[in-house]
Design a protein around this nucleic acid. Structure first.
Length: 591
DNA sequence: GCCGTTTTCGGCCCGACTGTTTTCAGTCG
């Protein structure tokens, strides 16, 4: 079958567009939700939908995707268009979807503006407000116009989402400051994407209990780095910080804290699915508790676990609450025990001031030992193109000498290197040098614009090198600043299994590379995964938790992660010649 | 539009806040 080369993301985009237009049209809210739900399901699919269609698969059994949507997927994949969408576009005024992107402009307002004021662009909205035309429309006034205008401005200036690693310190600071300024504050905790450890955060949700909500709200809006108050109530208050981040604070009775925690941790799809399930039991869920729909009586919960228990299920850890099967497993009491920070026995990617790190070798190693590791690999950069003060063969040999003669460490120190994978797939050091190392992390640092075919071939060539232990930050992406390289990840994971090469989950919050979806597929195919910090200073060692969260989000257990192996087993792994390593990995970790 | 150990038809998650209104629609999460 001839196909057009469309990604799952694009297909999901079609249904989001459908949903948006139907919303503006005022169509059935349930039909709209069905399209949105389908879009979310499609986004979360592991394999390519296009390939599935090309292979003649029926697409049956995908939740939320029935006859009609199936047909549209098929149409889009084979023809590159969806006639229903085009028809819809034709009957709707131009620009409605664009207008709906502005916070404060929903489907109704977008239609009103487009139809009555003949405006189809965001710039047009600004003009209409300046003219006073918009304010004259029904249910529009000065305040609404002012709000929209401000939202347009923030939309232009602010970065849409920030890495979790930047949001977390903000959360910690707010918690500390509120505790200090509001003695009546009892519990306070983040919810939403922060609590779920998502890689990026759009805004921050916080939850609190207190006997004095007014005092808490006053303290909150009075924080010195709050620049704007979006809304203020005793239950919900929203502010914008000087760094552009929006923070919502919700306050609730302590009897309902567990219910609220559940409610505002989400994600959205998890909650929808959970409420759907509760409905089938005759129960209705809200942030206040669980209501028996027959008697109308509400039960409150101080603890989240009790809330889930009332529904007859275990509590899925927040990281996996994204409606991808966790509810079903929780009901069957079959949730896996996910890998934890404490399971990691060694860090396999770390730099010293010999290359671009900030601390001397001894300082880095002492910090690692303090962190409780059984082993650590020091992996300074190879000489490459002279970047990052890479080590010449000579300096590398001298570093090896120092490390091998080190005494007095309880932790095993492994000699390693982060070796450049050159544009043609060869490595910076010759094989006889690599052979002297215990751990070789091979990474791409240059020629990132290569075609997918070339890049895939390049990385696989590095994997075939008998001395390469791990592929470092496989896609090289930097959150918010550098796109991932083009590569056939599926092929890389298969090559990892075939060659006995591990794939890194780089825990640096700016990288998180592999990401959670990659991890899911790698795990499925049985590729060994490694979680490393890529530390350039002692402070980065604690960033391990971000990498562990990536693994947890797609249900990795300790057995999927190579560096959860105790020292003896890990040594057995690296001492075994390469393709054979898979046997060791599968034996020691039980695949 | 999807879905069904209640159903192939009739349901579909739930509440807070704002602004423009005299009782609520619209938006958001």
């Amino acid at each position: 079958m001839k196909t057009k080369g469309v990604s799952n993301q694009e297909i999901a985009g079609v249904f989001d567009e459908m949903a948006g237009l139907l919303e503006a049209k005022g169509d059935s809210i349930f039909k709209i939700r069905a399209y949105q739900r389908a879009a979310r399901v499609i986004e979360g699919l592991p394999g390519s939908l296009e390939e599935a269609v090309a292979a003649g698969e029926e697409l049956k059994g995908l939740p939320g995707i029935g006859e009609a949507i199936r047909g549209k997927i098929h149409e889009y994949v084979t023809t590159g268009r969806v006639s229903a969408l085009e028809k819809l576009k034709a009957e709707m005024p131009d620009g409605v979807l664009q207008l709906m992107n502005v916070p404060g402009i929903g489907p109704k307002t977008a239609m009103l503006i487009a139809r009555e004021a003949g405006v189809s662009t965001v710039e047009g909205v600004e003009k209409a407000i300046a003219d006073g035309r918009l304010q004259k429309l029904p249910r529009m006034g000065e305040k609404t116009a002012e709000n929209i205008l401000r939202n347009i401005r923030t939309l232009r200036t602010k970065d849409r989402r920030i890495p979790l690693g930047r949001a977390m310190p903000v959360v910690e600071r707010i918690m500390a400051d509120l505790r200090e300024r509001c003695p009546a504050l009892e519990k306070i905790t983040p919810g939403g994407s922060v609590r779920r450890w998502q890689e990026t955060v759009g805004d921050i949700d916080m939850m609190a209990t207190t006997d004095d909500p007014e005092q808490a709200v006053k303290a909150f809006v009075g924080l010195p780095y709050v620049t704007r108050v979006l809304g203020k109530g005793v239950k919900k208050t929203s502010v914008i910080l000087d760094n552009g981040l929006q923070v919502d604070l919700r306050i609730i009775d302590k009897e309902s804290f567990g219910a609220m925690l559940q409610h505002f941790t989400g994600d959205r799809q998890h909650n929808i699915q959970l409420r759907d399930y509760a409905n089938s039991m005759g129960l209705s869920l809200s942030e206040y508790g669980i209501t028996d729909m027959k008697t109308g009586r509400m039960e409150k919960f101080t603890e989240e676990e009790a809330f889930y228990r009332r529904l007859g299920m275990d509590t899925p850890t927040p990281e996996i609450r994204h409606a991808r099967g966790e509810i079903e497993l929780a009901r069957r009491h079959a949730l896996p025990r996910l890998v934890e920070v404490g399971d990691i026995r060694g860090d396999l990617h770390m730099h010293s001031d010999w290359s671009d790190g900030r601390a001397p070798i001894e300082v880095m190693l002492e910090a690692a030992e303090e962190a409780g590791y059984q082993y650590v690999a020091l992996t300074d950069h190879s000489s490459g193109r002279g970047i990052a003060n890479g080590l010449t063969e000579e300096r590398l040999r001298s570093q090896i000498g120092i490390l091998r003669s080190m005494r007095g460490m309880a932790m095993k120190v492994l000699c390693g290197s982060e070796v450049d994978i050159r544009a043609d797939g060869t490595l910076d050091y010759p094989d006889e040098v690599l052979a002297e190392l215990d751990v070789v992390v091979a990474s791409v640092h240059s020629a990132m614009g290569q075609s997918s075919e070339k890049m895939t071939e390049r990385i696989i060539k590095a994997m075939r090198n008998p001395h390469v232990t791990v592929i470092g930050h496989p896609t090289t992406r930097l959150l918010g600043s550098r796109e991932p390289v083009q590569a056939d990840m599926e092929a890389l994971f298969r090559a990892a299994v075939e060659t006995g090469t591990a794939m890194e989950i780089n825990a640096s919050p700016e990288r998180l590379d592999l990401n959670d979806t990659h991890v899911m597929r790698a795990k499925e195919l049985g590729a060994p995964l490694v979680i490393s910090t890529d530390s350039h200073s002692t402070g980065s060692l604690e960033k391990l938790r971000y990498g562990v969260a990536v693994a947890r989000r797609w249900w990795c257990e300790a057995r999927h992660i190579l560096n959860t192996l105790p020292l003896e087993d890990f040594m057995a792994f690296i001492k075994t010649p390469k393709p054979e390593r898979m046997r060791v990995f599968n034996q020691r970790l039980g695949g």
